[in-house]
Design a protein around this nucleic acid. Structure first.
Lengths: 250, 250
DNA sequence: CGACGAATTGAACCTATTCAAAGGGTGTGG
DNA sequence: CCACACCCTTTGAATAGGTTCAATTCGTCG
């Protein structure tokens, strides 16, 4: 039951982290884009190769620099992909939700994870060994083909972010980040399209390549202009077109 | 013959653009990382699906926004992958040389190229239709698997650039760009490790997400500090460790 | 030699960062 | 159920770093 005092529109997600039923696992794996064209029998077989892991919010799933031995698939919850820098200025590479993967993609023994993954909410994650996954790729060519498509999409998204970081001022970068989040995590809500991830100003800043103070200023301004509604750890997009105008690589 | 007056250490490349012999094509395709594990017979068959295109320096090979119907492989020369923004501030996504690919990776009909590709030197490029390439992927699983590895590498490089743009000051970003270029295009030379691509300050700036003036200032400083040697359209790295110290994400 | 494009340099301006302090929401423990 | 403590957020003012604009120098090629 939600307390009357609580003003945040974000619902508290109580994910049962440590017990994904076999049914749920099969459903999740079936939703993973690159397993979608498989026969049910094959999927069940693949399912057996995955191990199931539960994490509390804040737990690290893997650390940048560790030997990359597994590929992970998010079953439930939100996972932060991040990169550390020596001065403690971490940057957020991506936010993942159910059906998305991360970890060892390079297929080469001896590699290390380039990013750390942290559970942003309580999360359930499926893990498969590098070599097992390699075998799946060789055995089911359509899986490999759709994986190529997904990686092409991610690469293209990364390139777009590169462009935004290069040419947009802080306000535009924040607008672009909010649009991306709204597309990916937004759900209709009386206040606007609510981004259903608890993100601090710091998180937004590290997605936009700026400081939490600058992010805060940009968000205040946007709120004054009626583009968004925002509070502690939440944002709702009210005027999509207005944000797009700011984020437009002009 | 090189003029005595010419001070640039970059050799003038006279690539025969319009006539790659069949032998050369086979050799190039064999060098493409994702075709490396194929039998000679298969390679010859694949070779037949490629068309050969020649470009002069400055020619556009494909334009962002055009329907993405082909995958391209660089056979000879250098290709600039770039993204335009409305205000004319283009950014350089990547520089490609022999064996690297670009173009339609998404495998979905109706997509458009996200970036433009421009011949940076005279260049010879091999092109294959989207559907033909799709068929190759399905027929030769190892090709798909190694392609996944390559894309994982590119994605990881893009993420690293994202981090650099986020946390490094201009000088550090320029240093990082020079290190990357030196790794990829560098060859030993009396002056230092010479980057064998004609790049203007503008090009370097758009790789580092800054202006040509700032790039120029950073380069002047590095030259004063004995880290590099540079002139019009060329750079040679003298002190790799020094650059690394600047580019270190501290 | 002459002309063009590239690179450098200077100075004013502006944006974003930094540092500091105050304000507000959330959840906890009394 | 209230009050407190903690962390997130906001805001202000000073500063540093980068951009912009403009003028000059330099290198390369015709």
């Amino acid at each position: 039951m939600q307390k009357a005092r609580r003003r945040s529109p974000l619902e508290i997600r109580v994910t049962e982290t440590h017990q994904c039923s076999v049914d749920l696992r099969l459903k999740i794996l079936g939703q993973v884009p690159f397993f979608q064209n498989l026969l049910p029998g094959n999927l069940a077989e693949i399912n057996r190769l995955f191990r199931e892991l539960g994490f509390e919010s804040g737990d690290y799933i893997c650390l940048a620099g560790d030997p990359a031995e597994r590929l992970y698939v998010v079953a439930d919850g939100r996972v932060k992909l991040m990169r550390h820098s020596l001065a403690g200025r971490d940057i957020l590479i991506d936010l993942l939700s159910a059906g998305e993967f991360f970890g060892s993609l390079s297929m080469e023994a001896g590699d290390v994870y380039p990013d750390s993954a942290q559970a942003q909410t309580a999360a359930c994650v499926l893990a498969i060994g590098r070599e097992d996954f390699q075998r799946i790729l060789e055995r089911y060519p359509p899986v490999a083909v759709s994986m190529i498509g997904i990686m092409a999409t991610r690469l293209q998204a990364a390139n777009q972010r590169l462009q935004q970081l290069s040419v947009l001022p802080v306000e535009g970068r924040i607008a672009a980040v909010l649009l991306m989040l709204s597309r990916k995590f937004g759900r209709p809500h009386p206040l606007g399209r609510l981004i259903e991830v608890p993100l601090s100003r710091d998180d937004l800043a590290s997605l936009a390549g700026t400081t939490s103070e600058s992010a805060s200023r940009a968000i205040s301004q946007m709120q004054k202009d009626g583009l968004i509604e925002s509070g502690r750890q939440w944002v709702a997009v009210k005027n999509r077109a207005g944000l797009e105008a700011l984020a437009c690589e002009s």
